[in-house]
Amino acid sequence: MEYIIQTKNLSKKFGKELAVNGVDIRIAKGEIYGFLGPNGAGKSTTIRMLLGLMKPTSGKVAIFGKDLKSERINILKKVGSLVENPSYYPHLTAKENLEAIRKIVGVPKTRIDEVLKTVRLQDAANKKVKGFSLGMKQRLGIATALLNKPELLILDEPTNGLDPSGIIEIRELIKSLPEKYGMTILISSHLLSEIDQIATTVGIITKGKMIFQDSIEEMRMFARQYIKLKVSQHEHAWRTLLASGMKAELEDGHILLSDQTDQHVAEAVQLLVQQGISIYRVEEDKKSLEDIFLQMTKEELAG
């Protein structure tokens, strides 16, 4: 398997605090890799190490199969990036901002109009970025990242601070890139829903540690929904359900039904009522990202 990004035991220490702890990322060609984690989990630090902005305390980064430390410049020629809040020069126009980067990456001038068109900023090309909305600045950031026709695009929280229509627009844009240009994309977010809709592979990091890395389908297994029942005599109720062949789990005095078809829920409720068990609440319980983190970290500790 050819990996575009491969890190080995990547770690970063700030003083005594271990911000990134032995992370192994593997991203194959053409993937949209969703890099998930709560704020402060080490996503940005990891991304900064991938771009050579920060030096790892230990561990290795290989991009396009080359060592980042020794071939940083050659690697970065084929990488486009947007790290956290977009960087720009407010006193310059959108075009001048792109020109300042274009001169360095050395692509023809026509690329500027192309990328402006891609992010639909052509009408604002000659306006100073100072007056741009956050969404426009974010799109300019993406345009900058696309300027050198990168083979690898690294986007750190690209939809942060955008309104819903902006998020959808950026999402569609990102989705289209691998097919159109054969790019591999690493996109980070703290929102599962965000990653869920674009990524093909997911890596989850928390407290500096990678706790999950697999395809999005595997990920969805964890994010499934439950019907949660609050009942009297939960122990008895649970056994009753199991005895009649229904899938149910007992958790913190609640019963969780994983099969959530209407018919199944109705049967379960009926069965419990017949057994004289009081039902206080029947609710849908969608696992939040936090819950999944908790679940995964628990498994991490147990296993």
């Binding site: 900064r48 771009l51 050579g52 902005l53 410049i73 050659n74 690697i75 970065l76 020629k77 990488v79 990036s81 790290v83 956290e84 960087s87 720009y88 020069y89 980067i101 360095i104 990456v105 900058t144």
Partner: peptide, 9 residues
């Protein structure tokens, strides 16, 4: 903008 500048080749 340092982070953008330094991430260039």
């Amino acid at each position: 903008a340092w982070k953008q500048l330094v991430a260039l080749p």
